[in-house]
Design a protein around this nucleic acid. Sequence first.
DNA 1: GAGTGGTCTAGACCACGGG
DNA 2: CCGTGGTCTAGACCACTCT
Lengths: 245, 245
Amino acid sequence: MASNAPASRSDGLHYLSLRDAIAARITAGDLKPGDKLPSERRLQEDLGVARGTVREGLFQLEAEGVIYRRDRSGWYVSPPPVVYDPTRWEGFMSYVEAQGRIPATETISANAVAADPLLADVFSRPPGSPLYVIRRRRYVDGRAVLVERLVVDAALAPDLLRFSFDQSLTSILKTEYGITVARNQVSMQPCALTGFEAEALRVKSGLPGLALQRRSYDAQGRMVEYDHEHWRHDAVRISVDTRVR
Amino acid sequence: MASNAPASRSDGLHYLSLRDAIAARITAGDLKPGDKLPSERRLQEDLGVARGTVREGLFQLEAEGVIYRRDRSGWYVSPPPVVYDPTRWEGFMSYVEAQGRIPATETISANAVAADPLLADVFSRPPGSPLYVIRRRRYVDGRAVLVERLVVDAALAPDLLRFSFDQSLTSILKTEYGITVARNQVSMQPCALTGFEAEALRVKSGLPGLALQRRSYDAQGRMVEYDHEHWRHDAVRISVDTRVR
DNA sequence: GAGTGGTCTAGACCACGGG
DNA sequence: CCGTGGTCTAGACCACTCT
């Protein structure tokens, strides 16, 4: 029994022992962000437990954001999260860069659409009003961390689609249209990444994530951007600093 | 076969079929918040799959916040989350009540301590300064949804421990000490509930959660409260409304 | 004491990634 | 192609809850 009891405790729970053992190797610096873990079958042999038990321990670490998987490639140590302040309007590109990380953006699609009743209500426009819908995938250090769907009022930013959205939309709106944001309404909720989002982020459906919705208004109270973001749960930390109302 | 079709049928993946079947029963209103699901062995028989496969499907729904488990009792349909605006300083009790839910608070411990170097730094006091540390568990409709550790500067709220913390600390600080909060610094991150938090919330270690840290300052910029909260991930939705700086 | 979920075993085949 | 994780089976015993 418990032949070479690894590290932390007389748990008796094998999957938690595995969890602790790997967590210890990471905090000790033996395994660094980006490093690949031994394969499940390798760990199974080393520890003398069933593969299901190994996976149970790995799932724990995944839920903690300590490791992540690349489908059918292996398990890797997670890099640290980026800090995101949704009350600021500096875009993704600048705050990721400011944290010493390498941001990248990829446009999945960009279309002109007519407002459906829901979007019409959000934008306080009649149904059928012209809007732009942009879908993007964004990366930190080469890892896809979020997918977003942006909606912009075509009346405020006519002919927006002639620009490339692989850079900052923030600066396009500012320099090309003179639009700045005065107010943000942000809400967020832990979620599971499924369907389109899971596929776009190349994660297994059901992985925990963070769903974030942002409405940005200019000084006149006009809706500028309506944004839905789905983040990998291990890639972001939210920070907000505010005056109390 | 790209699979963002939510159709429960042709998946081939048994655990996703189970997921879809139960999700459908919930959205149809066949199963309502608080209802208990059939036992795992019952589902196993009904669907003719192995128990591990049943559990896989249940874990998906759990990650989505759709269902939750009570240890060794069964699986239940999750109630809707409460909305939390960390920029407001109305306490837990009032905003939960305002949403038509029943809040409750239970004090786990309340102690006077001397500031360790870390807390001394946070409070800008010399190490050893007197502080109060309060641990509480909070409920919505009878379900434990968060545990918190509050730290208050004893110099601002002398003799605080004579009060009961099973009600609102907010109102104690306001009515008894004339303290109001002018600024909040909040940060939050998806996490796994483990150890003390998992035990206090009576969830299995490793369940996803939301870790939230709040620093509250009064108009003079003095630290009033330093708070760490650990929420069940399915119990809360964060909403923030701010002017852009 | 009966029923529930929690843990674990020892296999198996499949689908996809990457050399 | 081989190695990887992804899915699945069919059992087992334990720890706890509930009544």
